[in-house]
Structure formats: structure tokens, C-alpha cells
Design a protein around this nucleic acid. Structure first.
Lengths: 115, 115
DNA sequence: TTGACATGAAACTATTCGGTATCATATAAA
DNA sequence: TTTATATGATACCGAATAGTTTCATGTCAA
């Protein structure tokens, strides 16, 4: 009986990804860091709406925000996305057993080259 | 200016994954197909609540439902998850360039062995 | 110092979400 | 043919979402 749900490491990241506008923002930030104003210029919704989306992305640790003078620079935080991808990888075996195996091998190889 | 958002292929799949209970259900179904009642037995919430979650998972094409007598068998549909993983793979380059390359190579290899 | 500008924040609205309780329907079993 | 069981479906509730408008704050520049 599941009562206290063994919450995945990043509930808020999954929630942050649920909205198409927020996913679009992530795509934008993958090209370059942007101020709030610059992000707003890519959408038709108002600035406060974008601000809220950015707040949720930050809460889900998918972006980080860095003040610079009167601006705030929004930067993609890929590691937040990686944790989601890792959760999904649990299902790798269903569509590609061999890929999962290779993935493990590569990651092992990487850990070796890290030290 | 992004107005009509170039919606990702699987908006409803992302939404379906946003809830921890639904992700838990997917984990359960990855072990075995289940009737609604069997899924309910793993949680403390009521059957109609579970039913709604299953409906969202079905809408997001993450599961399929198959009537059998008076029961309805819920089955994991891994391909729905794969489309989400594919969207995420856009960001692979940020944390693992080499893995992304390997992934491409493996998938190419698979396509070869498919025909 | 004053004005322009980038952002913060609050208040409000409509809709969706996650949940409940309740009742209806269809099938299996006695 | 009853009766029990598995599910469908509806109505309702409180909280969270996604958006708006409006106003306040802080910083750069003239």
C-alpha cells in the first residue's frame, strides 16, 4: 500500500515541464542566457506571466537566476533535466534493451575518466 | 514571437507525468498489467481518483486499456514515454555529448537490423 | 537629482486538478 | 434469476494554474 509516496527526486521538475510555454522557455535558454525581458519578447503573454513560469522553472531547478545590475539573467540548468531523464531511463528496457546496456557502459567509462 | 506554440508531439504525456501518483502507477504497470481494482489496492486514495489518473495516462498515450469481461486491463505503453525521452534528449549535449553520439549510433544500428 | 527602464509584487479571475461521495450499469457466480 | 462484484459516471469541493491589471522598487543615465 503506497501511502507516503516515495516521491521522485524532483517532483517540482516534472511539474515545471508540464507546461508547453515553460518547455519552450527551456529551449530558448538552451541557446543563450536571457533577461526576463528578452524571454518576454518571444511570447505574446504578459511579463508577470512569464515571470511566474520562470519562478517555477527555478523552483524545479531547471534554471538559475543571476542578478546583474537591474537585470536578472536566466540560465538553463541542465542537471535538473538530467534527473528527469534518469527517471525515464528506468523504462529504457521497454524499447531498447541494448541501448540501456550501452548507456551504462558509457557512464561507467565516464566515471573512470573523471578521476 | 511565439504565438501558436509549436506544441511538442505529446503535451498530454508531459502533463500526465506531472503527478507523482501517476508516475507511481506507471512503475506498477511496468511490472505487470493490472485491472483498476488492482491498481487501487496499491494506494490509499479512492477508486474514482485512481480512475481519473488512469484516464489521463491513457489520454497521454502512456497506457492502453483493454476490456476483459467486466474488468479493464491497464497496460503500460512504453512508446509514449519514449517520445518524452526523445524531447529531453535535445538537451543531452549539455551533460553528455559522447552519450548522445553513441545513442544515435545505436539507433542507426537498430534501424539496420529492423529490415 | 530626476527620469527612464527592468523587475518585483499584490490582487483578482477563470479554469483545471486531485480528491471525495454517490448512484448507475454490466458481468460473473450461486 | 438473484446477488455480488468490477467498473462507469456524475456532481461537488478546495487548492493550484495560468493568466491579467495595477502599482511599487531599484538602478542606470542624462
Amino acid at each position: 500500500m503506497i501511502d507516503t509516496i516515495p516521491t521522485s527526486p524532483d517532483q517540482s521538475a516534472f511539474r515545471a515541464l508540464a507546461d508547453p510555454t515553460r518547455r519552450q522557455i527551456l529551449m530558448l535558454l538552451s541557446d543563450q542566457d536571457m533577461t526576463i525581458g528578452e524571454v518576454v519578447d518571444h511570447f505574446t503573454i504578459t511579463r508577470p506571466a512569464v515571470k511566474k513560469h520562470l519562478a517555477m522553472l527555478e523552483y524545479g531547478q531547471l534554471i538559475s537566476v543571476h542578478p546583474r545590475g537591474r537585470e536578472r539573467i536566466n540560465r538553463l540548468e541542465p542537471l535538473g533535466l538530467k534527473s528527469v531523464a534518469d527517471w525515464l531511463s528506468y523504462f529504457d528496457r521497454f524499447w531498447d534493451t541494448r541501448l540501456a546496456a550501452l548507456k551504462g557502459a558509457v557512464e561507467k567509462e565516464e566515471r573512470k575518466s573523471d578521476d
